[in-house]
């Protein structure tokens, strides 16, 4: 692999154990972050690594055949805009006008926006939005209200 793209996602190669390789502390830290969902960029940010460091570490792990690139081509469905409108509406019913601001803040925190929101990350957004609602009864009410509409996108 010539270049490590910041949007690539890796998982550990189940045929090889990292324990058999002589990994440095930071390399172990990267390995511990791999979950088949986080991108290279997100891992770099989580570990406060610069571009050169993260590229060097991933190249070493890939060349040692410890990592497998996740094929995201079939999962690249982007969440439709109407779903954000719907979620924002349901949030507003519970939290008032501040709901749309909270939605944007949470998406910022996830480093995603409405144009590139991967369907697989959407439950994570719902999780974070639910945590913004203080009342546990309303938390469940929110999730129960939005679930029937979300289901068709999430259970693909």
């Amino acid at each position: 692999m010539d270049k490590i793209d910041e949007n690539m996602v890796f998982v550990l190669n189940s045929q090889r154990s990292p324990e058999d390789s002589d990994l440095l502390h930071l390399e172990w830290a990267v390995v511990s972050q791999l979950d088949g969902q986080k991108t290279v960029q997100q891992i770099a940010e989580n570990l406060a690594l610069n571009t050169a460091e993260v590229e060097e570490i991933f190249k070493k792990l890939v060349s040692a055949e410890l990592l497998v690139l996740v094929d995201r081509s079939e999962n690249d469905d982007v969440v439709p805009g109407e779903l954000f409108k719907f979620v924002s509406h349901e949030m507003t019913l519970l939290l008032g006008p501040v709901a749309s601001i909270i939605l944007e803040d949470v998406m910022d925190m996830m480093r995603l926006n409405r144009d590139n929101f991967d369907r697989r990350r959407f439950p994570g957004l719902i999780d974070l939005l639910t945590n913004q609602i203080d009342d546990p009864v309303k938390q469940i009410e929110f999730q129960r209200n939005i679930y029937p509409k979300l289901k068709q996108y999430l259970l693909k």
């Binding site: 439950p123 994570g124 999780d127 999730q143 979300l150 999430l154």
Partner: peptide
């Protein structure tokens, strides 16, 4: 690959 937050959401609902 699976989002644990999806599992949590379905269980909650």
């Amino acid at each position: 690959p699976v989002e644990i937050s999806l599992i949590r959401l379905i269980v909650n609902v």
